Simulated scan of single mutants.
Amino acid sequence: MVLEAAVLYVKPGLEKAYESAFQQASAIISSMKGYRSHELQRCLEVKGKYLLLVEWESLEDHTIGFRQSVEYQDWKQLLHHFYEPFPVVEHFEKVDLT
């Protein structure tokens, strides 16, 4: 399992519109091969700051399967104009501590 993480900064005053658009975009990402789950968290201290966490079966399910898909174009159209600056997306794997 791979965890995609992105800190998102939404342009001031567009938070409600962003959350509505994200709800719509959720149907896109959740239909993709290798998708496991996602959540969007709103920061309590900084208005307009969000944390997106998406679980994928593999890195390639996100970077190739999703990012290079037709569906990703719809995702971009719904969400990317809200961000300032554009987010950095990183991928993480669980550390086995046993």
Rank of each mutant, 00 (worst) to 15 (best):
P85Q: 07
S37V: 02
D61P: 03
F92H: 14
V88M: 09
W75L: 09
Y18A: 03
E60H: 10
A27W: 00
V54K: 03
D61M: 07
E71A: 13
Q73R: 13
K33L: 09
V89K: 04
L97F: 15
K76H: 09
F86R: 13
H62L: 09
H91G: 09
E93R: 14
K94D: 10
G34H: 03
I28T: 01
F82K: 06
S58W: 00
A17P: 01
H62N: 11
F86M: 14
G13S: 02
E45C: 07
D96N: 12
L97H: 14
A5W: 12
V7K: 15
E60L: 04
L97R: 14
Q77H: 11
A6S: 15
T63E: 06
E15K: 02
K94T: 12
K16S: 13
Q24E: 13
K49N: 09
Y50A: 00
T63V: 10
E93Q: 14
F22P: 00
S31L: 05
A6G: 15
E71K: 12
A5P: 06
E84V: 05
Y83F: 15
Q24H: 10
H91R: 06
H62V: 08
D96A: 13
T98L: 12
E84F: 10
F66K: 08
R67A: 10
L79V: 02
A6C: 13
K47Q: 12
S37P: 00
Q73S: 11
M1H: 09
S69W: 04
L59N: 03
G65S: 02
G48Y: 02
T63I: 07
H80W: 07
D96G: 10
D74I: 04
F66V: 01
L8D: 01
A27L: 05
L3P: 01
V54R: 02
K76L: 08
I29W: 04
H81S: 15
H81L: 06
D61T: 08
E93C: 11
L44N: 08
E57L: 10
P85H: 10
